[in-house]
């Protein structure tokens, strides 16, 4: 009797899955072929013919390999995106909001700095905390196997979300104004906040990115984490 597992392993060696998952596919498919072969032997088919007939179930192993990968990875992509981007991103954003509210409650107020006829919103205590939160986001993303780009995206997620929210106010305003029949405040607020974008988005974004970059550099220096950070 042929070694079915070895036979399948040779033919599906390029299966781009985790080693444990790859092994499970090999074992499962080998068991199927073995059972087909045994059923044929029970029908008095000669051994060599039974082997050929069992293997004849797969005419193109490369195509099977590709289709198994596509089927298995469909769910993987969504799961990976959740663990590498959404969870660390939202965690970073949640913590940065909690920090901002806490600092305000503790009486740490923002400073307004004048620069070239403009007032820039400057919240030093909050900005100091952001690199740590950016680093946390990048760390969690990298630990989940996120690539450098994904880890950095997770670290600056709060600044991106804030920018997107402000930008969304314009189309929302355009929809709401004709409905309520009077001028809504969204556009005014958004325009004012965008004008202060340096303080609300650019500085926090840079602080978060600095933390994210630092965490990524530190993680990539560790040999054990280098492999998991690529993906």
């Amino acid at each position: 009797m042929p070694d079915w597992q070895e036979l399948v392993r040779q033919r599906l060696s390029g299966l781009a899955l985790d080693p444990s998952e790859k092994e499970e596919v090999h074992v499962e498919l080998a068991a199927h072929l073995e059972e087909s072969y045994e059923a044929l032997l029970k029908e008095n088919v000669p051994e060599q013919a039974a082997v050929s007939a069992a293997l004849f179930q797969v005419t193109d192993w490369q195509d099977l390999q590709r289709r198994i990968c596509a089927a298995k990875k469909r769910g993987h992509i969504m799961k990976k995106r959740l663990h590498q981007l959404w969870i660390p991103g939202f965690l970073t954003m949640g913590l940065s909001i909690v920090f901002l509210v806490t600092l305000q409650k503790l009486g740490f107020n923002a400073r307004i700095v004048s620069w070239r006829d403009s007032d820039i919103f400057f919240y030093a205590p909050w900005l100091v905390s952001l690199p740590f939160l950016g680093a946390l986001g990048a760390y969690i993303s990298s630990r989940a196997g996120g690539s450098r780009g994904t880890a950095l995206l997770a670290s600056i997620f709060p600044a991106l979300a804030l920018t997107l929210t402000f930008l969304l106010m314009f189309p929302i305003d355009m929809i709401i104004e004709p409905i309520i029949g009077r001028q809504a405040d969204f556009k005014i607020v958004a325009a004012a906040l965008l004008k202060d974008g340096i303080g609300w988005m650019l500085f926090p974004g840079v602080a978060l990115l600095a933390g994210g970059l630092l965490a990524h550099v530190l993680l990539s220096l560790r040999p054990s984490s280098r492999e998991t950070a690529i993906g």
Binding site: L29, L33, D63, L64, A71, G75
Partner: peptide
């Protein structure tokens, strides 16, 4: 169902 037809479908249905 041959092996080649069955398993990609089972894996896809499992992901779903």
């Amino acid at each position: 169902f041959t092996l080649a037809a069955l398993y990609p479908m089972l894996y896809r249905m499992e992901q779903q």
